[in-house]
Amino acid sequence: MFDFVSFFPRAVVQSIPLLYGATGETLTEKSGNLNLGIPGIMYVGGICGVIGAFFYEQSGNMDGFLAVLIPMVCCLLGSLLMGLLYCFLTVTLRANQNVTGLAMTTFGVGFGNFFGGSLIKLTGSEVPSIALSATSSYFSRSLPFADRLGVFGKLFLSYGFLAYLAILIALAASYILKRTRLGLQLRAVGESPATADAAGINITRYKYVATCVGSMIAGLGGLYYVMDYACGVWSNDAFGDRGWLAIALVIFTTWRPNVGILASILFGGLYILYLFIPTGTNLSVKELYKMLPYLVTIVVLIISSMRNKRENQPPESLGVPYFREER
């Protein structure tokens, strides 16, 4: 018997980090930057939040507002720095975007594991993880009356505020891209920077801002993962391949953040489906189910390239550095 009421909320909490990552990456890619550093940036966002929360918890007195604010500011700062570094390398110095992105993912994961390991040493605990349950309790606090609303409350109101923020950001990103002058110009930068430049748009500024804002949004995904999903427990490498899944999600949604909301829940569901499907004791079958999100992405790639609709293609200059006087 498939238990939807317990499956759906778990799919949602799985989906939120993916949604943050995908929204951030979509904004970045719309400016023509293919930031493969997103997994690393989410990792850095997570560990920076943990560092902030750790020292605030160490300081003793806990204030609810500060307990949320400090990790968030730390997380945003950390991912902003990563975004700036990426922009400096690819936009200002025109380095290869793929290589830069992959290097930043390696760097971000190493950075996270190094400081995670240091904090674990500081606490001197037996298990290789840090538990920040006090901070986490503020992050995962849901509306007080959610429990009383039965199934509805469990399905839609049982999440921490970062989950709703993710959906709001995705909707806002969609609106900005589609309906505003800013979004129109950002899309033009990603499609054809030479055109945008000739139209008087500052390419460098758009690329920097879109990539940095995108990185900060993606970083929040890392923070949500530690503080809400993992109940404030940081252990090295636990974040796993969610960053890559977020990039796959961007292609899956054909660069539309509003579609990303439902698509990320689908991906989240596929990600944990193996827990809900009776597979007996055969562990290898479970492993096969874990392939689902990636298989779906491949299928979508095939379908969208077969339909060959121009609107569903990646931004045309994605991955290409822009230099005005190039001949």
Binding site: R179, R181, Q185, R187, A188, S192, A198, A199, Q313
Partner: peptide, 26 residues
């Protein structure tokens, strides 16, 4: 320009207002 500077996936109107700072909403 000899090679047109237009964004293919946008409409004519969107291409025309590209880069303009007109007051108010788009």
């Amino acid at each position: 320009h000899q090679h047109f500077k237009l964004v293919d996936v946008l409409t004519a109107a969107e291409n025309i207002v590209l880069g303009l700072k007109e007051p108010g909403r788009l």
